[in-house]
Design a protein around this nucleic acid. Structure first.
Lengths: 147, 147
DNA sequence: CTCAATGCAAAGTATTTGCAACCGA
DNA sequence: TCGGTTGCAAATACTTTGCATTGAG
């Protein structure tokens, strides 16, 4: 968990976003900063779709074109700043938490939340087929609201 | 049903497909039978996309329109004959094995195979958030070819 | 004969791409 | 300045839908 400094002078959201981009060697352009701020500026919005991030940007002071949102999300992901979560064939979700963890998928509203870190543990995993190695194990826990 | 000869030996692929449809209360139309045969007629083609099944049908003696393939896959899935596998945001995969099991996803060629049954065991799973229950736990093991 | 199922093409979504204008280093 | 970025619209998947036709019971 990235427990950031809370005390004294609060880091402006922009500074954090700048560091985030720099850590991946990405140029801090206006649009990227705006999106980065929305993504990691505070605790909100950790799981986004292109559409939801686009709306968030539009609502905020720095509107960005939808195509750029798509391209930027992809760039961030390729740079290792985001992870793509595959839970629903129709949309791509992105997560600002790139550490290994499972996800809850709320079937009712299509929302995604994090499963508590370390809450999924494997007792046993298959041996990868010959000539292959396990790149990643994705776990999606589908939730249904109990009535 | 003019089922005259029930002969001894091997059930024709069609008979199996018919039973499969009947078990879900679905009308055995020509197209459904053709697709069902391709899906469960023999051991092949357990994991399909709309496209791959469409090609298979096209190659075989009973061509079916692509829209019907989509609609039929959806109907089969809703009837519980298939499971939809979500591993890649861009395409939907369907599996004729509806039992609970994990999947290998070959990142190189986008192919899906079954992980051996029972090869994934959980030591621990999160408690579902309040008011929710776990509907299903999807496990996708992403494989990368080792060079 | 009747209503579900099909076929086709057109309509939808979700996402990518081409290319000129732009801007950060 | 120079090459990486952006914006827009058009292009590209993938999938669903409308509606007339077909066919199973």
């Amino acid at each position: 968990m990235t427990e950031t400094t809370k005390g004294g002078g609060k880091q402006p959201r922009t500074a954090r976003a700048e560091r985030w981009l720099a850590s991946a060697g990405m140029r801090p352009t206006r649009q990227r900063l705006a999106l980065a701020e929305l993504l990691i500026g505070d605790g909100m919005n950790r799981h986004v779709t292109a559409e939801s991030l686009f709306d968030a940007a539009r609502t905020s002071d720095q509107p960005v074109s939808l195509a750029t949102v798509y391209n930027t999300l992809r760039s961030f992901t390729e740079a290792g700043l985001l992870t793509e979560i595959t839970v629903d064939g129709s949309r791509s979700y992105f997560d600002t938490d790139v550490s290994d963890h499972a996800h809850f998928f709320w079937e009712d509203d299509g929302k995604i939340t994090d499963a508590p870190h370390g809450s999924v543990r494997f007792d046993m995993l298959p041996t990868p087929p010959d000539g292959a190695e396990i790149a990643k194990v994705d776990v999606v826990i589908r939730l249904r609201r109990r009535s």
